[in-house]
Design a protein around this nucleic acid. Structure first.
Lengths: 342, 342
DNA sequence: TTGTACGCGTTATCAG
DNA sequence: CTGATAACGCGTACAA
């Protein structure tokens, strides 16, 4: 009695019905729908008319079954929802990806894989729901990646930790170099007691930016003890800053591994009555929207996040098209944007 | 020569292969995989062993084709990417949805439908890629909705404008009532020149909160001319505030239709040297994370965004299961949270 | 309880 | 250039 809702809805037209309407065979309709050139123009017109008339749309599942391709990409984010939404960096990446996809006939499936133990995500992927995967915010412990790579083409946003995996595809900036540029700026404007709020040390972006920071200080002959690790979140950065200020009250500059974290740093600094940049100069990383609109507009290392998303999608799409000339690593440029904070 | 990448990857095992391995028929394996009770325990064990051994996972497309169901829901957001990511309200909604879905075997497909003229989104949906749709941030002009509703079950986040459409399912709060509570608080603390930065007038949430605001002022016998419409964005709210302050420099309180907008309002107020709440008291709406961490912690009308997302997903899932007792409208409670801004 | 056989909507192979 | 016909992998009446 409690009939399924679905059954009460009108069935979508099928190839068969279009064929009947147009007076041709299914095969021919399929050819027209898929844009085969070798079809009589008159027939093409007739078929298209029938398609219009019936509002025909190919069934995805059937096509996928016959095709062995889904026309869908998966965006895997091994992070929790709130962190994903909280960081404008992700927004930019996704925007770039969708911009590339909009000019293709692929769709994007977003998998924020924290809540469940990645189990469900892997099941989804391995059940053939996507032709390829984009992975961002990859942490060291995320072992599911290796398995995934045997299943479908994968492109990383950010260098995967496992450097030996030379056949991995990824898009990134030279994080170490960017960090050097940012830190050097602090040195150049005369700061001598420079600290850093770093990113997580289980992520390449966190490690590499930290490395660049250290390298610059060492080269300048400055102390490298004013360091606290954080997790790319506002709250984490705020906590780290409090700890750092307590330990090293004399710092006059901070290199912060992301703009979002820098906003957290600014909060704490203001709360403690330290003026930016007079008392403490700040250099961030990302040049996300948050940088320009921060309480103190941030001097920051700019990376082309949106372009990186675009490049990721582009790389994967080329891979899927069988292009063997796709470069494994795409490194994009960074540059310093000077605003008010340093 | 340029072999397709896909072809080089190991094929996933099929039902057939599992059947062979277990020494039974495909049908039996299918039954076991789908948890049919009427199967000999020994055979169940044998089949499961084979499944484990081969790492079998049902092919989604094939199952969907035979089943006529995809086990996927679509989350449609007729908004642009940046706005979607920028508002913590959406994050909370999505979080609630995924929390409900995690305990089901459905997956979520996110469709941010601004970039393309909704055309691609509709094609996707009508091609049978989802069993049902969740729609949030619905604007008046979004005509695709009507078409969608004939195709699959739809649940709205926020009352759809078309009230006559009594058979629509939606989850919402009583926005007008919430706005009354918030505005009344401003009256109660003695403010008399109360203005509002409203939401967009092509969205029910914008309209209803505006209505509640007007109703309260009228009841209190206060002027209702200090009003500017904005678009639920920080920048939009900031611009509206500047305009409003120019026109009505004497306002001593503002009811702002969302917390995110309220942060924009705070920026402008500070920039103009007006102290909150001394010079201008502020009441926001949402009680999103942004409220507590704002420059001046916001007094705001709290709505259970995360629970609303959960309820939306729950409603849709019940609909899909053929449950006919699902209520069309689910109205959740709001209450005032008093912090520092008013 | 288990197996056989057919259908789900498309694509692809192969004759014609 | 067009039309049968066989997959694609799975669910499920129906029969045994």
């Amino acid at each position: 009695m409690t009939a399924s809702v679905r059954q009460t809805r009108p069935a979508q037209p099928t190839l068969e019905m279009v064929a009947a309407e147009a007076g041709v065979s299914r095969a021919t309709v399929s050819r027209v729908v898929n844009g085969s050139t070798k079809v009589n123009p008159e027939i093409v017109a007739a078929v298209n008319a029938a398609v219009e008339l019936l509002h025909y749309l190919p069934n995805r599942a059937a096509r996928s079954l016959a095709n062995r391709r889904t026309q869908a990409l998966a965006l895997v984010v091994p992070e929790d929802m709130t962190r994903f939404f909280g960081d404008p960096y992700f927004a930019a990446i996704v925007q770039g990806i969708t911009r590339r996809l909009d000019e293709s006939d692929y769709t994007l499936n977003l998998l924020v894989a924290s809540s469940d133990p990645q189990h469900k995500t892997m099941r989804y992927l391995r059940s053939g729901s996507a032709d390829g995967a984009l992975i961002i915010s990859h942490h060291t412990g995320d072992d599911f990646v290796a398995e995934l790579e045997t299943t479908m083409p994968v492109v990383f946003g950010g260098r995967p930790e496992d450097d030996s995996d030379t056949d991995a595809y990824f898009v990134d900036v030279d994080n170490a170099e960017g960090a050097e540029t940012g830190t050097q700026h602090l040195v150049d404007i005369g700061r001598r007691r420079i600290g850093s709020i770093t990113g997580p040390v289980d992520m390449s972006a966190g490690i590499d930016r930290f490395t660049g920071f250290l390298r610059t200080l060492t080269r300048a002959g400055l102390a490298t003890d004013a360091i606290e690790h954080a997790d790319f979140s506002v709250a984490g950065a705020a906590a780290a800053t409090r700890k750092l200020l307590e330990r090293c009250p004399d710092i006059d500059a901070l290199f912060v591994a992301s703009d979002l974290m820098a906003t957290g740093v600014l909060d704490v600094l203001r709360e403690q009555g330290r003026v930016v940049p007079r008392d403490v100069a700040i250099v961030g990383f990302d040049d996300s929207p948050a940088a320009a609109s921060a309480a103190v507009p941030l001097t920051t290392v700019s990376q082309p996040s949106e372009e990186m998303g675009f490049a990721m999608a582009d790389t994967l799409l080329r891979l899927l098209s069988g292009d063997t000339t796709v470069p494994h690593r795409t490194i994009m440029p960074t540059y310093l944007v000077v605003r008010d904070s340093a």
